Amino acid sequence: MTLRIVRSVAELRAALSPLRAGRIGFVPTMGALHEGHLSLLRAAGAENDTVVLSIFVNPTQFTQATDLEMYPRTEQDDVALAAGAGAHLVFAPSVDEMYPTGFATTVSVDAAITETLEGAVRGRAHFDGVATVVAKLLLAVLPDRAYFGAKDAQQVVVVRRMVADLGIPVEIIQRPTSREDDGLARSSRNTRLSPEEREIATAVPRALRAAQDAFATGIRDAAALTGAVHDALDVAGLTPEYIALVDPDSLEPVASVARPALLAVAVPVGSVRLIDNVFLTPGIDDRIPLGAIEVSHR
């Protein structure tokens, strides 16, 4: 099937109508595709008959105008990459298509999972924007499965809650975080790091690895595990916005790891906010593979 680009919901539905006898997989993105996105497309291709990619820089989830303005727009390159990764259809709407004149509806998920972690830093409006645009995209595509990366674990929790509450008939698939050879989680924002900042940024996965190493020795206490992350970041001269050990479904803090838990961190490096996380599961050793790059101290 030749890759096709559509700009409107009407075009999208018309293109998908004859393909609904098979399974449809969907990967929502804001473009600036990297290997993480491509891995989601390949996973969708392995499990579905048709793969849809959306490219839409959603203005309602940005809390700072400068961040929205600086977000990379690379549609031509994205389409070429998507075709190589097996996408069949690219939905690339305009802001007016997604938010037409008079648009007055917001999808808002309970504060317990939207006003913590990223929500506490970026504000409730961030996840209202995420929930609203993902709901619109899912209703436009009506896929059988939608694919998200684990780096944005809180976003996945919010989307799963929204899908369950609204009864949207889609299976939400969370895939492992895609990482560079040195362990840094892939992100479109990484391109904004200077060479020196890019090297310093490797302290983030190394700090999470320090907690994983402690966990592997039998340490289960939240204070000790988050302390291991904090100490490793401090050595690199980085100050985290938050380090949290939480339940992976409710995002409620946990005092000790008796069952799977999510260890999440947000760290500014220069002007770029990096977020990352690992899952700590008793009986499973799944530590971040790290390269040999030395971290510069500041």
Rank of each mutant, 00 (worst) to 15 (best):
P59A: 03
N58Y: 04
A216S: 14
P28H: 01
I113G: 06
I172E: 04
E69G: 00
V229H: 10
D234P: 00
T281R: 13
R73E: 10
P28D: 00
E75R: 09
V107L: 12
D221R: 07
V57W: 02
I284W: 13
A214H: 09
A266W: 07
T177P: 14
A292M: 13
G167Q: 09
E197S: 14
S54I: 03
E11G: 10
M30A: 10
L193E: 10
P18N: 04
L290W: 11
G270P: 01
P253Y: 06
T177Y: 12
V51I: 04
A43D: 13
G86Q: 08
S256W: 00
A232N: 01
R220T: 10
R189W: 12
E11H: 11
A236E: 03
R23G: 08
A21G: 15
D128M: 04
D67M: 04
V265G: 07
A120G: 08
G22P: 03
G84C: 13
P195T: 06
L245K: 01
R122A: 05
T226R: 11
D144F: 02
E199Q: 15
V163N: 06
A80W: 09
F26Q: 03
T106V: 15
Y242M: 01
V51W: 09
D165T: 11
V90G: 12
E241F: 00
F26G: 05
V158I: 15
V90H: 11
V159L: 05
F215A: 05
R259I: 05
V246F: 09
T116I: 08
R7Q: 13
L89M: 08
R160S: 13
G167K: 07
T101W: 11
H88V: 01
V6T: 06
G84H: 10
V52R: 07
H126V: 13
T66A: 13
I113T: 12
